[in-house]
């Protein structure tokens, strides 16, 4: 990962020629080969436990010192829409009618990919994947280009449009500054009454997730979402219904998005002048196989 980040730095500093060379060396490293830091932490989210109380949204708002919400956090009218993350809400809980009398809630936030597409797509190198597992960013260097927003397979990064002249990226940072770096669980995990989220070493959580399925095969679909998706994510999910019924992209690729976008990246400085075309291209690649992806439809009319 370090090499890749350096490679991206190279793109920025040296322009097209250097970048093209770097792309070649980047290719030599098989995409998806990065297993992640051995002690990286993660979160196992069990959708079957969530009761939709929105405590996690409230805790995130307080912990991240986000602006006042439009509605109180105990207001359940928000469930009539499928919301996405915004500059004011790094996490949102949506409600899904999955069967006649059965609803499931799903909390959305950054999944903290092992090989993050946002990081790969950022040509000012604003993003870092920390050894603890968090994908964080340096808003000071962000130029507001929105590449990461387009590259993210989960539609997570939002922009502070309230500042039209200086829109900066905003997203869940796994409570890195205030908690994760000191070994503490994130605020949303901490407050959840149902322990929907289990915090631990990612490697342990993979085992825990499979054990939970094995102990109760009638309750869960036999899949740990995020174990493999886009090269692995730090936040992983268990569900009692097919994942596409609760807004996940069930057909998401297992290879990291970087394998799609890296060829593009070498050309970034050149295509700055053909901005819209770049966006369309990266978007198409990042959303490959995304037919019928709910998040996306929702994201589009926001």
């Amino acid at each position: 990962m370090i090499e890749r980040r350096d490679f991206l730095k190279g793109c920025l500093a040296c322009g097209v020629t250097a970048a093209t060379v770097s792309v070649a060396s980047g290719k030599a490293m098989a995409a998806g080969s990065f297993e992640g830091y051995p002690d990286a932490m993660g979160v196992l989210v069990d959708l079957t436990r969530c009761v939709g109380c929105r405590s996690c949204e409230a805790a995130c708002n307080a912990e991240q010192k986000l602006p006042e919400p439009d509605l109180a956090f105990d207001d359940t009218s928000v469930f009539s829409d499928k919301r996405r993350t915004t500059e004011k809400a790094y996490t949102v809980v949506n409600k899904y009618q999955v069967a006649d009398k059965e609803t499931l809630f799903r909390k959305i936030q950054c999944n903290h990919c092992t090989e993050p597409a946002c990081l790969s797509s950022c040509f000012v190198n604003a993003y870092t994947k920390t050894k603890e597992g968090a994908v964080i960013y340096n808003a000071k260097v962000c130029v507001g280009c929105r590449n990461c927003m387009i590259a993210c397979p989960f539609n997570i990064p939002a922009y502070s449009y309230s500042s039209p002249l200086n829109p900066l990226v905003k997203k869940c940072i796994f409570c890195y500054d205030t908690r994760l770096k000191d070994g503490k669980p994130p605020a949303c995990v901490d407050i959840c009454p149902q322990q929907v989220m289990t915090f631990g070493r990612r490697a342990d959580l993979i085992k825990l997730g499979h054990d939970r399925i094995q102990a109760n095969p009638a309750k869960y679909v036999d899949k740990l979402y995020g174990e493999k998706a886009v090269g692995g994510t730090s936040w992983m999910y268990l569900s009692s219904v097919d994942f596409d019924k609760v807004g996940f992209d069930g057909h998401i690729q297992n290879e990291p998005i970087i394998s799609n976008v890296k060829d593009f990246l070498g050309f970034v400085p050149m295509v700055l002048s053909i901005w819209p075309a770049l966006f369309t291209g990266v978007h198409l690649l990042a959303t490959k196989n995304k037919d019928g992806h709910h998040d996306h439809e929702e994201g589009d009319h926001q």
């Binding site: 405590s55 708002n61 439009d70 109180a72 956090f73 105990d74």
Partner: peptide
């Protein structure tokens, strides 16, 4: 306080701040 409810309820629906510019 944390749920922004009761006396901490949001005052008014947020207006787009861009209007100030």
């Amino acid at each position: 306080a944390i749920f922004k409810s009761g006396k901490y309820a949001p005052k008014a629906p947020a207006k787009p701040k861009a209007a100030h510019h």
